[in-house]
Simulated assay, not measured.
Amino acid sequence: MKKGITGLLLICSIIFLIACGSKKESASQLPVVKTPLTRTESLLHTVVQLSIYHENQEEAMDGAIKLIKEMESLLSTSVEGSDIYRINQAAGKEPVKVDERTFELVEEALNASDRSQGRFDITIGVINKLWNIGSENARKPDSSEIEAALPYVGYDKVKLDAKEKTVYIEEGMSLELGAISKGYIADQVKKYFEEKGISTAIINLGGNVVVMGTSPNQEKGWKVGVQDPDKIRGATVGYVYQKNRSIVTSGIYERYIEVDGQIYHHILSPATGYPVENTISGVTVFTDTSTQGDTLSTTLFIYGIEEGLAYINDLEGVEAVFIDKDHGVHLSDGLKDHFALTNEEYHLAD
């Protein structure tokens, strides 16, 4: 049994952010510096790294770290007393009043489930608990266990009360927000930074990356590298410049177990209860919000490349890079004239 790489290697393996060039600042903005204030912390079961490209922002940095810790305490499934823990404990008993941010996140997750026709589903918690991929207790469950759990998966069974800010799930159900919570927290940190007047920063929550503004040295934007799914130490297949964007990468390399010589990765289908099987090795999604990027990175794995590209090309302001298991790189329409392939082991697919 083998677990995926975590910590700093996870950050490196998912995305590179490289700055180069020149930029002018408007008088209304805080002065931008080339050497950022950077803080690295072990939070959210990964390594969090924040970089602020303005001087004298120690107080804002402290506030951002405090905010991340606060959000983690609200959204964890394992911390007793957290909103999600209380919802799961009260399954089938009573609605649970939650923090406004928790309610907003659950509501957005259900909307994402509806838009994806259930491919993304936060009620998959009962299935995740069977596999436990990413923990020391990871295992391949019996088919009978999965069949018994599937009736308790279904986002349409979650009941929200917007006035009372309560969430209710049926007996036997379990919420799991791991596929959306880091994106939501990243957006909350961005909002906090903006309130502090910060215009230029990088928020990296273990692969959920938000770039604010542009590189202090490059008007074209931040040079964002797309991870090589076959490597775990940050090798990339190519890059694209981005400004004020979220970048979320998911891959079958992240967390998995090996049983009897077969690899089972952590991206599970709500319909079957098993890891998704298709030709995708990794996908990187570019969006305006990290919350949306988080949901899409999971949804696209379940769609597959052909349907996933069609889905992305119909969305406004969203782009994606799919990498298949034969080293083909598939680009959404808006990236075809902007993505630079740099790895000779890969090729641009038709």
Score class of each variant (00 low, 15 high):
residue 44 L to E: 05
residue 45 H to Y: 11
residue 46 T to P: 03
residue 46 T to Q: 04
residue 47 V to E: 07
residue 47 V to S: 04
residue 47 V to A: 09
residue 47 V to K: 08
residue 49 Q to W: 01
residue 50 L to Y: 09
residue 50 L to D: 05
residue 55 E to T: 13
residue 57 Q to T: 14
residue 57 Q to S: 14
residue 58 E to C: 10
residue 59 E to Y: 04
residue 60 A to D: 12
residue 61 M to S: 13
residue 61 M to N: 12
residue 61 M to E: 12
residue 62 D to Q: 13
residue 63 G to Q: 08
residue 64 A to P: 04
residue 64 A to W: 07
residue 64 A to S: 15
residue 65 I to V: 15
residue 66 K to W: 06
residue 66 K to E: 10
residue 68 I to W: 01
residue 68 I to V: 12
residue 69 K to C: 12
residue 69 K to Y: 01
residue 70 E to F: 12
residue 71 M to T: 07
residue 72 E to Y: 06
residue 72 E to A: 07
residue 73 S to R: 12
residue 74 L to V: 05
residue 75 L to V: 03
residue 77 T to F: 04
residue 77 T to Q: 12
residue 78 S to G: 14
residue 78 S to L: 13
residue 80 E to T: 15
residue 81 G to N: 11
residue 83 D to E: 02
residue 84 I to N: 01
residue 86 R to N: 15
residue 88 N to K: 11
residue 90 A to P: 02
residue 92 G to L: 11
residue 95 P to A: 07
residue 96 V to T: 02
residue 102 T to H: 01
residue 102 T to M: 01
residue 103 F to V: 09
residue 103 F to T: 08
residue 104 E to W: 00
residue 105 L to Y: 00
residue 106 V to Y: 08
residue 108 E to W: 08
residue 108 E to K: 15
residue 110 L to F: 02
residue 111 N to R: 15
residue 112 A to L: 09
residue 112 A to Q: 00
residue 112 A to S: 11
residue 115 R to W: 07
residue 115 R to L: 06
residue 116 S to D: 10
residue 116 S to V: 12
residue 116 S to W: 04
residue 120 F to Y: 15
residue 121 D to A: 13
residue 122 I to G: 06
residue 122 I to D: 06
residue 124 I to A: 01
residue 124 I to V: 14
residue 126 V to G: 00
residue 127 I to S: 00
residue 129 K to Y: 06
residue 129 K to M: 09
residue 129 K to H: 12
residue 129 K to Q: 11
residue 130 L to N: 02
residue 130 L to R: 00
residue 130 L to A: 04
residue 131 W to N: 03
residue 131 W to E: 02
residue 132 N to I: 05
residue 133 I to W: 03
residue 133 I to H: 07
residue 134 G to M: 10
residue 137 N to W: 10
residue 139 R to K: 13
residue 141 P to T: 00
residue 144 S to C: 05
residue 146 I to M: 01
residue 146 I to F: 00
residue 148 A to T: 01
residue 150 L to W: 08
residue 151 P to S: 10
residue 152 Y to F: 13
residue 152 Y to I: 06
residue 152 Y to G: 04
residue 152 Y to R: 02
residue 153 V to M: 11
residue 155 Y to N: 03
residue 156 D to N: 14
residue 156 D to L: 14
residue 156 D to I: 13
residue 160 L to V: 07
residue 161 D to I: 01
residue 163 K to Y: 08
residue 165 K to F: 03
residue 169 I to L: 04
residue 172 G to K: 04
residue 173 M to K: 08
residue 174 S to M: 14
residue 175 L to I: 14
residue 175 L to H: 04
residue 176 E to N: 15
residue 177 L to F: 12
residue 178 G to E: 07
residue 179 A to H: 05
residue 179 A to Q: 08
residue 181 S to I: 05
residue 181 S to R: 03
residue 182 K to Q: 02
residue 182 K to L: 00
residue 183 G to A: 00
residue 183 G to T: 01
residue 184 Y to E: 06
residue 185 I to C: 06
residue 185 I to F: 02
